[in-house]
């Protein structure tokens, strides 16, 4: 602490000046201080962010005139009806299925990393695991997608690796699977899935690790003492206790996959995901109401998801 402050007399001296009086006011009236502190962030987020969100929501209740292509400013549910057309329903099911697959596999891949980091890593290894998850999490999203474009390309490292170990027929077999296969990995759903899994994996690891760190070792020992073998302890003790962390992580993987429009555009087949549909409708088509209605879909899905997650206690693990 600054010595000049501690060295000043203990008796409070009246300090004149506008600034000092303002400071006294803040101390005597905490509500004024609170208002001063809260006003800038609340105004910024409330006006710019929430304002835009509500404006967008309002537009989903307008509809576009099919002949002129202009937005008609009359309240209607017609645009939401359009969401139920088979082609749009397909987009929604495709995206939700992908989000669910990514979430399940992210949980499976993340568990060993999170468990090892929470339970066994000490000292230097703890730092290695922490940074090992944080660096990929924070490194550039586009660079990560780009790296996968390099990996999955037909002339890329994955094809090379498969042919080096003589598993080319296996790769061709996988690509021949209808729906998820394709000409090469970079234009198939498998490719899209791998990139999603890679990009969102750290978001699953961190909350899982936080939940696992709170599981007392004594519980695991007690389970072993009662005669459970390690896999029984895993199933009946560890996993139920780690579940809030899994649910917390799944909020990220699910929501991020629902809203992404860049990954399926760069790696994957030409069939649209929700994000791409939003992008296409607001851009070239100029159909803002339908784009707005499309954005309501992930918001509603996430609303239900969060409601369920809260009931499972997932927010304590965040």
């Amino acid at each position: 602490m600054n010595p000049s402050v501690t060295a000043s007399p203990a008796v409070l001296q009246r300090k004149p000046g506008l600034l000092a009086r303002f400071s006294d006011l803040l101390w005597r009236r905490p509500t004024v201080l609170l208002a001063v502190l809260l006003a800038p962030p609340v105004l910024w987020l409330g006006v710019i962010y929430l304002g835009s969100l509500f404006a967008l929501l309002a537009q989903s209740f307008f509809a576009i005139d099919e002949f002129t292509g202009l937005v008609q400013y009359e309240w209607t549910l017609k645009t939401y009806g359009e969401l139920l057309r088979p082609v749009n329903l397909d987009i929604i099911t495709r995206t939700v299925t992908m989000a669910a697959c990514v979430t399940v596999f992210a949980a499976i891949v993340a568990f060993p990393i999170a468990y090892f980091a929470a339970r066994y890593a000490r000292g230097r290894w703890k730092a290695v695991f922490y940074l090992g998850v944080m660096l990929p999490l924070w490194s550039s999203y586009l660079v990560k997608v780009y790296a996968w474009k390099l990996i999955l390309a037909k002339e890329g490292i994955l094809t090379w690796g498969f042919s080096k170990i003589g598993l080319m027929p296996l790769l061709e077999l996988i690509l021949a699977i209808p729906v998820i296969g394709g000409n090469s990995l970079s234009v198939s759903y498998i490719g899209t899935f791998l990139v999603f899994l890679y990009v969102w994996l750290p978001f699953m690891i961190l909350p899982m690790q936080a939940a696992l760190e709170r599981v007392p070792v004594s519980l695991l020992e007690a389970s072993a003492d009662q005669g459970a073998n390690p896999s029984e302890t895993l199933r009946h003790v560890l996993l139920p206790l780690a579940l809030p962390g899994v649910v917390a992580g799944s909020i990220f993987t699910f929501s991020l996959t629902l809203g992404d429009y860049i990954i399926p555009q760069i790696v994957g087949s030409s069939r649209l995901f929700i994000g791409q549909a939003v992008y296409a409708h607001q851009g070239t088509a100029g159909n803002i109401p339908l784009a707005a209605a499309f954005t309501v879909v992930p918001v509603v899905i996430m609303g239900f998801y969060l409601w369920g997650a809260k009931r499972m206690g997932a927010f304590d693990a965040l």
Binding site: P41, V42, L45, G46, I48, Y49, L50, G51, S52, L53, A55, L56, Q59, I251, S255, L256, L258, G259, D260, Y261, G275, V278, Y279, Q282, I288, A291, A292, T295, P298, V299, M302
Partner: peptide
């Protein structure tokens, strides 16, 4: 309200700001 801009998919923030 502070968390919302990253909890909602980025595309929603983006298109909301654009239309605003």
């Amino acid at each position: 309200m502070v968390i919302l801009p990253i909890a909602l998919p980025g595309i929603i923030t983006g298109i909301a700001l654009r239309s605003a």
